[in-house]
Amino acid sequence: MKTPDAPSFPIWPAIAPTIACHTAVWTAICAVGALGSYRDYVGQAVHGYGHFLLRWLAYHVPMIMLGSGLSLALSRWPALFDSARRSALIYTGLLFSFLPLEWLYVAFCDVLFRGAGVAWAAVCSAFMAMPMFNRFTEFSWMSGTLVAMAAIGNWRLARVREAGWRRAQNDNLALQLALEQQRMLALRAQLEPHFIFNALNAISALVRTADGPLALSGIARLSDLLRYALAAGARETVSIGEELQFVHDYLSLQRLRYGARLHFVIEGDSVAVRHGDCPPLLLQPLIENALRHDLDSHEGEGDIRLSFALAGNDVLIRVCNPLQPHATPNPGAGLGLQNTRERLQSSNKQASLQTQRVDGRFLVEIRMPLQVA
């Protein structure tokens, strides 16, 4: 009858405390019953209260044994009464084995307390003459004990299963959190080399033009950018103001490469917006994507715009660049928008990133809750 719902453990060390517990419970019940019997015979009986208590205890020894036995069985097999079929079989077995023996024991106690001498014939006679009410009373005690133990056993089993379910839920949530953190780290690991690669491309373009001072200036700016990227990458969130400063520094580096062709406008960067938080390195991939699909695709001037707007409890961030119908395609590696979308979803399930073409421009829009960094 061993089940996988709960582990079994040795039964013998629990015998003494279990019997003591049930003896104490039944002693309290017998004390109340004996008090009632004593009051019924006040002025008539020659025996005191102790005599009635002794008789009640003697009559209920089988109940103490039954309760203790069921408790020990439950400690060994916690799911003993979990099945209705098994419970019915146990009840039927007690009904046809324990109950007749209990009636016989009660008859023996009747003969013993009458003081007429204990003989098998006298016990059998008392057994046959036992009133139906007494039989029903013993039947009720047995049934009540079984029902009570079954209820206690199933309650304990339910608590064990609930605790196991909660542990499993906590373990599952911890595993999901660990996986999400690893996924975020993997995205960051993809993002940072990608950013470094593109920044180095900008400097290499300056080196190829043999403009030494500009190249050195670019290396110094790249050092500042990398310092922020490494520091921000170790944090869960940064302020939008910090990200904007990083964008300005990044654009300064790119301006060394594109010169007067780089036109960039920032709108709506209010104090409330700047104090909001966001995932680190959120804006730079969007700016880089706009540069790649705008200035890298033609030889003319660019027109990239970054705007912020408040919409209730959300902040809207839009980055747009013109679409050149005859420009040379520059698809890039495809990491920027994809990584940004996944990092937003990982940091906040309510955040979203949408892209669309509007009036000859490519628009990236981020919506996320505005929270103070």
Rank of each mutant, 00 (worst) to 15 (best):
F9S: 12
I11E: 02
A20H: 03
C21V: 09
A31H: 06
R39Q: 12
Q44N: 10
Q44H: 11
A45W: 13
A45T: 15
A45G: 13
A45Q: 07
H51C: 00
L57Q: 14
Y59M: 13
H60T: 14
S68E: 02
L74C: 14
R76M: 12
W77V: 15
R86P: 01
S87A: 15
L89H: 14
Y91M: 10
F98Q: 02
L99E: 05
W103P: 00
A107H: 04
A122C: 06
C124Q: 10
A126R: 09
M130R: 06
N134M: 08
T145A: 13
A148S: 11
A151R: 00
I152T: 03
W155K: 06
R159V: 02
R183Y: 11
M184W: 11
P193N: 02
L200V: 07
L200R: 08
V207Q: 04
T209R: 15
G212A: 14
A220V: 07
R221I: 08
R221G: 03
L225A: 04
T237M: 11
L244S: 04
L244Y: 00
L253F: 06
G259F: 06
R261I: 01
R261T: 00
F264I: 01
S270G: 03
R274F: 02
R274E: 04
L282H: 05
L286M: 11
I287P: 00
R292V: 00
D296W: 02
H298K: 01
H298Q: 11
E301N: 13
F308P: 00
A309Q: 13
L310Y: 00
R318D: 11
V319W: 03
A333Y: 03
G336T: 07
L337R: 07
L337N: 06
T340I: 09
Q350N: 14
S352E: 14
R357S: 14
L370P: 00
